[in-house]
């Protein structure tokens, strides 16, 4: 039995929405960062599904690049988060508020 492609796409959209919601709701910087990773992985799922649908490999190739970029992003992002933590000993995003609109 094969699972219809639409199911994968719905799952991808749901994961992406969870990511967006977590990005907006969660207050810990690391969790917010994880929410971004979740969104990227939701996109990966969509790419693989579409690649399967079109029977073209470039969608799957795209996924590899997304993963590499996500890893690079983690390196830079965690470095910035460490700088923040050193400066104020907190990872609560509400307390990172030196500058206001």
């Amino acid at each position: 039995m094969t699972v219809p492609l639409a199911y994968y796409l719905v799952l991808s959209a749901v994961l992406f929405s969870i990511g967006v919601a977590a990005f907006l709701i969660r207050r810990n910087i690391i969790t917010v960062f994880l929410a971004i990773e979740l969104m990227l992985n939701a996109v990966n799922l969509a790419f693989v599904t579409f690649a399967h649908q079109w029977r073209i490999v470039n969608g799957q190739i795209f996924v590899f690049f997304v993963m590499v970029v996500a890893a690079a992003e983690a390196a830079v992002g965690l470095a910035i988060i460490i700088t923040i933590f050193r400066a104020r000993n907190t990872l609560n995003i509400d307390q990172v508020d030196l500058m206001k609109l």
Partner: peptide, 14 residues
């Protein structure tokens, strides 16, 4: 925003 852009790209690809 990079994730949003990627989602847009994936839909266009689809």
């Amino acid at each position: 925003s990079a994730a949003f852009l990627l989602f847009g790209i994936s839909l266009l690809y689809g």
